[in-house]
Simulated assay, not measured.
Amino acid sequence: MSRQMARPGGRSARVQASVHAAVRELAAETGREALTVPLVAQRAGVTPSTIYRRWGDLQALLSDVAVERLRPDTAPRDLGDLASSLTAWAEQFLDEMASPAGRAYIRDALLGDPDGSNAGQCSAYAAEQIGLVLAHAAEHAGDGERDGDGRLDVETVVDRVVAPIMYRILFRPEGLDAAYARRLVAGVLARTGP
């Protein structure tokens, strides 16, 4: 079975859930550096061969856990207008991703990602959230809301808000705060115009 399985059912789902829980618990108790496949297997109640068969190695398992932890728990808040909703989403995104846990999950997700599928999944999470923000704003604004042909769309927000945030988190983390997120959103809204 591949770690890329979307949502396995039955025994496979139970194994995944118990192994993921074991990784999270052990990392909290002993630190990520102390994790080993046999230790995780013992805590999860499975054999090490089950983990090797499913994930291949410890890094791939940590990557799988990280991608799952980076999945948003809730839909973005609808604050009634695009600027407010997108700003609130960007502030929360930056706060979660720039936190020590968020940074560790990002690193783990990327380290065990030889084919780019984890990065793609994490990007899809952000794009889905942005899509919801834009859809809510369009509902409030009617036909006048921006999308496509020079107007605001998901890819523009990914390029001008998410990408700079992720770059700064990974390579230049100093100065990351809510004001930075607000400046990025204000910039993307000003460039797209009404």
Rank of each mutant, 00 (worst) to 15 (best):
A179V: 13
R32W: 13
S123R: 15
A101Y: 00
R3A: 11
G148Y: 02
M166Y: 03
V133A: 08
Y125A: 04
D115K: 11
D113M: 10
G80T: 07
D159I: 07
R146Q: 14
G9R: 14
D57L: 07
V133M: 10
L82C: 06
A83C: 05
L26A: 07
P72D: 07
A101P: 00
L132R: 15
E68I: 06
V157C: 03
S123G: 15
V67L: 10
L62E: 13
N118A: 15
P114D: 06
L134V: 12
M1T: 13
G80V: 07
A22H: 03
A41R: 00
H20I: 05
E174I: 03
T36S: 15
E25P: 00
L62K: 01
F93E: 11
V157W: 00
R191C: 08
R172I: 06
L58A: 05
A13E: 11
L58F: 01
E139V: 08
A75H: 09
A13C: 05
T156N: 06
R77P: 00
E139N: 08
E25H: 11
E128I: 05
D73H: 12
E91K: 13
V161L: 05
A75M: 12
R182F: 04
V154Y: 01
V157I: 04
P100M: 02
E91F: 07
G10I: 03
L61P: 01
A141P: 02
A126T: 10
P48T: 11
A34L: 10
G150I: 06
D73P: 04
A6I: 14
A138E: 07
P48L: 05
E33K: 13
D78I: 02
C122D: 06
E25C: 07
A127C: 07
S84N: 07
A124P: 01
G45Y: 03
D108S: 10
L110S: 10
G148F: 02
G148D: 10
A60P: 00
N118Y: 01
D143L: 13
E68Q: 14
S18F: 00
R71A: 15
M97S: 12
H20P: 00
G175A: 09
I165A: 03
T50H: 08
L176Y: 02
A135F: 08
Y167S: 09
S117K: 08
L82F: 04
T47N: 13
P173F: 02
A127Q: 12
R69D: 15
R11Q: 14
R183S: 14
A98K: 10
T156I: 13
V40K: 04
N118D: 02
A135L: 13
R168A: 08
A44D: 01
Q129F: 01
M1A: 13
S99L: 04
V188Q: 08
L184Y: 03
V133C: 03
L152S: 06
R103M: 06
A17C: 05
L62H: 04
A126P: 01
R32D: 14
D177L: 09
Y105F: 09
M5H: 11
I165W: 01
D95K: 15
P173E: 10
A178V: 12
R151V: 09
Y125N: 06
A137I: 09
I169G: 07
A163M: 08
R191G: 13
A28V: 05
A163K: 10
